[in-house]
């Protein structure tokens, strides 16, 4: 039994399998492994990226939290066990590859903004997102302006007017406004092979 589990683990992490299932080629996966090794050994050399190591890699500071980095960590941690393992890292980062389908990027962004994971983006979630954006950007806006931005958002996206944004409405809006998904592409990933020392 142990032998079978080991084989499954090897297969799950195997660069050829990951290459077949993601936008990366095997050489890029090897380069990502170097990056993963660096990130996952920053605080504890255990082959797993903790939230603190993720924040350290992202901000150069393990205490520098943000709603957006928390949400990305939660989505990268697809097994929800509080750490990111290599296969999760590669599979999740694939959506940020320049050649990943726009529909996959839109679906990932929807999950990111659906903070409470209800399957819809609701007014309260949009408000939390705006306030987090203002906080991170060190900007201040009056509550009236924030409410007006929320109204505008729902005018633009909530096409059936039910007060919440579903995946179809989001997909339609993102297709009409591809700049919304700009942050869903990491140009570095196309150059992953040169990241390897």
């Amino acid at each position: 039994m142990g032998c079978i589990c080991t084989k499954q683990q090897l297969k799950y992490d195997d660069p050829a399998v990951l290459a077949a299932e993601t936008c990366f080629n095997e050489a890029e996966i090897e380069a990502l492994h170097e990056l993963f090794r660096k990130l996952s050994s920053a605080l504890k050399d255990d082959g797993l990226i903790s939230k603190e190591e993720f924040q350290l890699g992202l901000f150069r500071n393990s205490k520098n939290q943000s709603l957006f980095s928390d949400r990305i960590f939660q989505l990268l941690d697809s097994k929800h066990d509080g750490v990111i393992e290599f296969a999760e890292f590669v599979r999740s980062l694939s959506v940020f590859h320049p050649e990943a389908p726009q529909s996959d990027k839109a679906a990932f962004a929807f999950k990111l903004y659906d903070i409470w994971e209800t399957g819809f983006i609701e007014r309260d979630e949009v408000k939390v997102l705006i306030l987090a954006f203002l906080d991170e950007s060190e900007l201040m806006l009056s509550d009236d302006i924030v409410e007006a931005i929320i109204d505008k958002t729902f005018e633009d996206v909530d096409s059936n007017g039910d007060g919440k944004i579903d995946q179809e409405e989001w997909k339609e809006f993102a297709t009409r406004n591809p700049s919304l998904l700009k942050n869903m592409t990491i140009p570095y990933l196309k150059l992953a092979t040169v990241l390897s020392p």
């Binding site: 990130l39 007006a148 942050n183």
Partner: peptide
């Protein structure tokens, strides 16, 4: 027709910001 043509919507605001920028992970 839109009632607030001069306002930006929340997703455009966040999409243009660096809030979701993951490039820090790749910089040495």
């Amino acid at each position: 027709s839109p009632k607030s043509p001069n306002l930006i919507n929340a997703f455009q605001l966040i999409g243009m910001s660096s809030c979701l920028d993951l490039s820090g992970l790749f910089e040495k």
